[in-house]
Design a binder for these strands. Structure first.
Lengths: 207, 207
DNA sequence: AGCCAAACGGAAAAGCTTTCCGCTTGATTT
DNA sequence: AAATCAAGCGGAAAGCTTTTCCGTTTGGCT
């Protein structure tokens, strides 16, 4: 029963329509936070984010009452972006290629956004809802991609979206002493393993 | 002037022997931290810990220069305790029973000490060494238990310690919307699956 | 134009971690 | 047993961060 309009993947939960400048600031903050989290880490001081966004701290805390609300919003935004990539890739590529490309994007979501993994596992009650959001948002996307590729006969049809998501998540867990690209390489092999067709070289390994 | 001395499984790294009262305080702090982390969470203020331990903050920071050092020490202590349980259980029970009991202890280590999982996955460089310590310490313990039970023919002999450890760790990852006992139940099933003997009821399910 | 609630900025408050230093005390020597 | 003194202690204060507060600005509306 969300009756409010225009809140694509909003920050916390917007009960009323935001003023134009406020909406702009929220977007700027989210963007800045994404950048800073990737650069300095999730523990970066709020000041760094507000400076980059060009707003005062008061503005940050108006929209994200707690620091964790901002982290949560960024993670959700990353998840949303990954989900949105599904239809886009499907429109631009053949089913199997779209699937492979999306899985690489998903891998990157897990591997490069350190904040995501730690938020998911932190045990902090503020992030309790995230794993659920993660699954609810991404499972349909992957299911659609899998179904399309399976319908074409390009890949095996006995893999459930959720299983694949978990398996890749598992592969992306950081293991002490492995080079950074290790996870991506393993996932590449897994992706190749989905294929029904003849072995192709360089499809998932190269960029 | 021999400055090297015994440091059983000390806090950070003790280059010289501690004075008796200092040793007592370190122990008290570790004990207090364990309690507080389990109660209030890993983010509990240091004050709560020093109060419970009955020491001043200065004392805490003398022994654990950074907050993360204390967390690290507690995690290591938990790992050590789990490792120490191996020989103890082996002495007190038959091989297969000892193995099952130890795996339950290991499950508890993963499941109830929220701090461990989040420290392992946090990405904070302060905890980088922990996954390695975890494996190095627990793998030999489990290997010994497995070998003993396998030698008796009580369990299958085609399971490597590391694989089992990872599998259980995987089962213990928190999944949104599952009851708290879910992980333990699943692990119980896995443990039963190791057995070569006739199905027994209530061995791993009950407490 | 003029109104005013929404939104802003940033100073101040609150809270945590970490440092500092004068005082206390366990161990050692005499 | 007393003296000595470096190791160790406690807690006040410094340094950072997050969070609150409030006077000022401004977008949306009439």
């Amino acid at each position: 029963m969300p009756e409010n309009a225009a809140a694509p993947a909003g920050p916390p939960a917007a009960p009323r329509r935001l003023r134009a400048d406020a909406q702009r600031n929220v977007t700027a903050l989210l963007e800045a936070a994404k950048t800073v989290f990737d650069t300095t880490g999730v523990d970066a001081p709020a000041k760094e984010i507000t400076d980059l966004a060009g707003v005062g701290v008061g503005t940050l805390y108006r929209h994200f009452p707690q620091r964790s609300d901002l982290v949560k919003a960024v993670v959700q935004s990353n998840i949303d972006a990954c989900a949105a990539a599904g239809p886009r890739l499907r429109a631009a590529h053949e089913p199997a290629a779209a699937l492979a490309a999306w899985l690489r994007e998903y891998t990157e979501l897990l591997g490069t956004k350190r904040g995501l993994a730690s938020a998911l596992h932190s045990g902090d009650p503020a992030y309790e809802a995230l794993p659920g959001y993660f699954l609810e948002t991404l499972t349909p996307t992957l299911t659609a991609l899998l179904d399309a590729a399976a319908a074409d006969g390009e890949i095996r049809d006995d893999v459930a979206a959720k299983d694949l998501m978990f398996a890749i998540a598992q592969l992306c867990l950081p293991v002490a002493g492995e080079s950074p690209g290790h996870s991506a390489r393993m996932v590449g092999i897994l992706i190749d393993g989905l294929s029904n067709g003849p072995r192709r070289q360089g499809r998932t390994a190269g960029q």
